[in-house]
Amino acid sequence: MDSNDVRSDLKHVLYTREEIQQRVTELAQEIDADYQGRDILLVGVLKGAVMVMADLARALHSHVTMDWMAVSSYGSGTQSSGVVRILKDLETDLLGKHVLIVEDIIDSGLTLSWLKANLLSRGPASVEICTLLRKPHAAKVEIDVRYVGFEIPSEFVVGYGLDFAEKYRNLDFIGTLAPHIYE
């Protein structure tokens, strides 16, 4: 699926496949430098982080293990509800591990703030956050995000794992969804 397949659903393309891949490579270089000599447990937040986590893991030169967690605070709407439900928990014991949460997007920060606190309570050596996208103007809570791919405006975006009602995840770029789709 490419931009021609969904042209009428989008306002515009924010980041192309090439721009995303370049930024993910840069993030991997930063992470490799910061975690030199340490193994990393990448914790992907399903479903949106699948694309970025796969590309990030391949770009890293550090040893990594991966696990997945599914949490929900959206449903099919466009605003975070702030109520977090665990749909799938980790299979890995975090005790003493260096955990890097990998997210697709941070807007309000409510879900991620809850998730980080939850993971910290499990006794890891460290917990840091890597996100491809962050909407700084949508933040409702302060959260320390160590690695940020792109800061974006407070618009509804889709593609590269990001969805609206489970559609658009398979786009290889990130675009702004046209309001007539979700209003």
Rank of each mutant, 00 (worst) to 15 (best):
Q36N: 13
C130N: 06
R58G: 09
L90F: 01
V64R: 02
S72L: 07
R38N: 12
H63T: 14
T78D: 04
Y74N: 04
V141A: 06
T65Y: 00
S113Y: 11
R38K: 11
H98M: 02
P136T: 06
G75M: 08
L112N: 12
L95S: 14
H63S: 12
Q36K: 15
G77D: 02
Y147N: 03
G44D: 02
A138F: 05
G149Q: 04
G109V: 11
T92R: 13
S73C: 14
V145R: 13
M69C: 12
G149D: 04
L100F: 03
T65R: 03
R122C: 12
M51S: 10
K135S: 02
Y74K: 03
G37Q: 06
A59F: 01
W68S: 09
L42E: 05
A54H: 03
P124L: 06
L115Q: 05
Y74E: 06
V43I: 15
I106E: 03
K135M: 03
V148P: 06
I143C: 05
S62G: 05
V50I: 15
V102F: 09
S108V: 14
L110C: 10
L100Y: 06
R134M: 13
L133D: 02
E91R: 12
V83S: 07
A139C: 07
K116G: 03
C130P: 04
R38V: 05
S126T: 04
A70I: 04
A49C: 06
L119A: 08
H63D: 09
L94D: 08
D55N: 07
T111I: 13
S108I: 15
G123Q: 09
K47F: 03
D55R: 07
S121F: 06
R58P: 08
G44P: 11
G77P: 00
A54C: 12
S62T: 15
V141D: 10
G123S: 13
L87C: 12
I143L: 14
M53T: 15
L60R: 01
K116T: 15
V102L: 13
V45M: 11
L60T: 00
A54E: 10
H98N: 15
R122F: 02
G75W: 01
A57W: 02
S62W: 02
L112K: 08
L112F: 06
A54W: 02
V102I: 15
E151A: 07
V148M: 05
L133R: 12
H137F: 06
M66F: 12
D89H: 10
G96Y: 04
A57R: 11
D144W: 00
G48F: 03
V127D: 07
I129H: 07
S76G: 09
L100E: 06
M69G: 08
D144A: 14
V141F: 02
Q79F: 12
Q79N: 14
F150K: 03
S72Y: 04
A117H: 08
G149K: 08
R85S: 14
S62Y: 04
P136I: 01
F150I: 01
V45W: 01
V64C: 14
I129M: 07
C130T: 14
V148Y: 00
D107K: 09
L41W: 00
L94Q: 10
R85T: 15
A59R: 01
I105R: 07
